[in-house]
Simulated scan of single mutants.
Amino acid sequence: MREFRRSRRRAVAGAVAAALAITAGPVGCDAPPGADRGPVKRPKPSPTRVWDRAPGSLAAVGDSITRGFDACSLFADCPEVSWATGTDTAVRSLALRLLGTAAGAPPGPEPPPAGRPGGGAAPPQNPPPAAAPRRAWNHARSGARMADLPAQMTAAADRGPELVTVMVGANDACRDTPAQMTPVAEFTESFTAAMRSLRRTAPKTHVYVSSVPDLKRLWSTGRGNPLGKQIWKLGICASMLGDADDLGPAAQERRALVHDRVVAYNRALRDVCAKDLRCRYDGDAVFDYRFTGEQLSPWDWFHPSRNGQSRLAEIAYRNITAARPPE
């Protein structure tokens, strides 16, 4: 009988200990379901990129390409044929394609099938030439390098544009020798500073960044023209175009250095742009475009001709109005 009572007491004690353990909860382990765990930390959602496919005003910054240099005459700007802000209806600048339509000009035709030369949607029908200039400003300067961009961006921001176009970098690679090319780190710092300059006074302005053209491809295309090669001897982009017919190892290495630097500049443009929620890079569209003799200036066989300016406008219009950014 005594043994039976001891066994019973041990059983009761064990049951009580088990109940206390459950009540107190496990030590050093997760709390049971329903227990108060405190605030739950959730991952922050990624910021949403913002893009306006139909801006109502634009300012252009950059270099001689955006100034229409050598498109109309030798060694002269011709801003009326600029791909960005020009008024020439034969070129159909980005400003005319975007702002002319916004100002009440008839909309353009439907985009053609894939494979259209130059890529992308056909431009709208010619809007009235006066429609764009009232809301388009060209702050580019022939000869400008990336170090000049912060000041241009400040001037552009003062206009309060809904879109700023950027095309700069060729002059950073086009120097007397490859050793004089702008270092990539310096190029990147200047572009970052330019974006900061814009954002100080224009936080909601959208920015479209064009890639630097493939200078080596321009050399390959233009060197077949005897007149063009004579003009090149005057010092146009000597790091790439100098001794145009020299195919020896040293000349090839020099051109390869310039080509690689342009590729690095484009990566910098892409990476800095990617950090800004209202910036869109062209996905190397200008760099990849295969300019022909028809698209090169008849004066220097290096800068874009009227036709080349029109192709640049077409590329920009396609990318700016696209629902998604270029890959």
Rank of each mutant, 00 (worst) to 15 (best):
P123N: 12
P117V: 08
D63A: 06
E110C: 13
P133Y: 00
M167N: 13
M240V: 13
S142E: 05
G293Y: 03
A285S: 10
E294M: 10
S93Y: 00
Q180K: 14
L96M: 07
A316T: 02
A313H: 00
Y265F: 07
L247M: 13
R318S: 15
G34D: 10
L269N: 03
I315M: 07
P32C: 03
Y289C: 01
L241F: 06
Q309H: 05
K41W: 15
R254C: 03
H259S: 14
V262H: 04
Y281S: 03
V166H: 00
W219C: 06
L218K: 04
R37D: 13
W232Q: 03
P106L: 11
S220C: 11
G120N: 00
S7I: 13
L163S: 02
G120F: 00
S211R: 01
T48E: 15
G248N: 08
E3H: 11
I236C: 10
G235D: 11
R200F: 02
Y317W: 01
C174T: 02
G25N: 12
P106I: 07
Q309T: 05
R318A: 11
R290A: 09
D172V: 02
V207M: 02
W219Y: 12
C72T: 11
L149A: 02
P106D: 14
A60N: 02
A274L: 01
R97L: 09
A323N: 13
E186H: 04
F302Y: 12
E162G: 09
A17W: 04
L277V: 09
R280W: 05
R37M: 12
A114V: 09
P79W: 01
L98M: 08
L94A: 00
G28V: 05
R280Y: 10
P128M: 11
P117H: 11
P326T: 01
V207Q: 01
G120M: 06
G143Q: 02
T192W: 11
P128G: 10
S73T: 15
A155G: 10
W232M: 01
D176M: 13
G160Q: 05
H259W: 13
S310G: 08
V184W: 06
A140V: 00
K275V: 09
A316D: 03
V61E: 00
A76I: 13
D300G: 04
D282V: 07
E186R: 11
R175K: 11
F287W: 09
